[in-house]
Amino acid sequence: MTVLTDADARTEVLNRLRRAEGQIRGVQRMIEEGESCLKIGQQFSAVRKALDSTYLRMTMCFMEQELENCLQPDESQKANMETMLKDMETLLARMG
């Protein structure tokens, strides 16, 4: 089983999740306070986007970690791999 071992990546993903958690609490508060469905819907959309981008970031971190473990690139290959991963992240982000 793959585990996210990079401490910085793990911290980044957790921070993104904490922000999304705060947004969800905000939606709950809006419902409790009787906000309009339109405003609540806008916040739901923001939460979904935040979670989607967090999932994408986590996936990219796993991919980078696993590629580095499998390929163990030298410095010239590492730059190429970083470019390839950035391109993949851009393509995957457009799928949502």
Score class of each variant (00 low, 15 high):
residue 3 V to L: 10
residue 15 N to D: 15
residue 49 K to Y: 10
residue 95 M to W: 04
residue 62 F to K: 11
residue 54 T to M: 05
residue 95 M to Q: 13
residue 76 S to L: 02
residue 71 L to A: 08
residue 36 S to G: 03
residue 10 R to T: 15
residue 30 M to P: 07
residue 93 A to I: 04
residue 29 R to W: 02
residue 78 K to N: 00
residue 53 S to L: 11
residue 72 Q to M: 07
residue 64 E to C: 12
residue 24 I to N: 02
residue 27 V to F: 02
residue 91 L to S: 12
residue 87 D to L: 08
residue 51 L to D: 12
residue 52 D to C: 02
residue 47 V to A: 01
residue 22 G to L: 07
residue 82 E to C: 10
residue 52 D to G: 05
residue 11 T to W: 03
residue 35 E to M: 03
residue 17 L to P: 01
residue 82 E to H: 06
residue 61 C to G: 08
residue 89 E to Y: 00
residue 35 E to W: 02
residue 95 M to N: 08
residue 78 K to Q: 15
residue 20 A to Y: 01
residue 66 E to V: 08
residue 74 D to C: 04
residue 77 Q to A: 10
residue 41 G to M: 03
residue 67 L to S: 01
residue 70 C to A: 15
residue 27 V to E: 06
residue 46 A to T: 09
residue 94 R to W: 02
residue 62 F to S: 08
residue 21 E to P: 02
residue 83 T to Y: 10
residue 33 E to Y: 01
residue 31 I to L: 10
residue 53 S to E: 14
residue 83 T to P: 00
residue 48 R to P: 05
residue 4 L to C: 12
residue 6 D to M: 00
residue 82 E to S: 04
residue 5 T to M: 10
residue 56 L to D: 09
residue 55 Y to A: 13
residue 27 V to I: 15
residue 34 G to W: 10
residue 51 L to Y: 13
residue 88 M to P: 09
residue 82 E to R: 09
residue 37 C to I: 03
residue 22 G to V: 11
residue 66 E to N: 04
residue 32 E to G: 07
residue 10 R to M: 11
residue 44 F to P: 00
residue 11 T to Q: 13
residue 3 V to Y: 15
residue 77 Q to Y: 02
residue 87 D to Q: 03
residue 60 M to D: 04
residue 54 T to F: 05
residue 36 S to C: 05
residue 75 E to Y: 04
residue 89 E to I: 02
residue 6 D to I: 12
residue 58 M to I: 10
residue 14 L to G: 01
residue 51 L to N: 10
residue 1 M to K: 09
residue 85 L to M: 14
residue 75 E to A: 14
residue 44 F to W: 08
residue 54 T to C: 04
residue 78 K to W: 01
residue 25 R to D: 11
residue 27 V to C: 03
residue 60 M to A: 07
residue 80 N to S: 10
residue 77 Q to K: 03
residue 11 T to G: 03
residue 60 M to N: 03
residue 65 Q to V: 13
residue 34 G to S: 02
residue 42 Q to Y: 04
residue 63 M to W: 00
residue 96 G to C: 07
residue 87 D to N: 07
residue 14 L to S: 11
residue 89 E to H: 07
residue 21 E to W: 08
residue 62 F to N: 03
residue 12 E to Y: 13
residue 8 D to F: 06
residue 57 R to V: 06
residue 49 K to E: 09
residue 35 E to I: 12
residue 65 Q to N: 04
residue 6 D to L: 06
residue 46 A to Y: 06
residue 71 L to R: 06
residue 7 A to F: 01
residue 82 E to P: 00
residue 41 G to Q: 00
residue 8 D to S: 07
residue 43 Q to V: 02
residue 15 N to P: 06
residue 94 R to G: 13
residue 10 R to A: 15
residue 84 M to I: 14
residue 87 D to I: 13
residue 32 E to F: 06
residue 75 E to S: 11
residue 74 D to A: 01
residue 38 L to E: 04
residue 93 A to N: 06
residue 56 L to N: 11
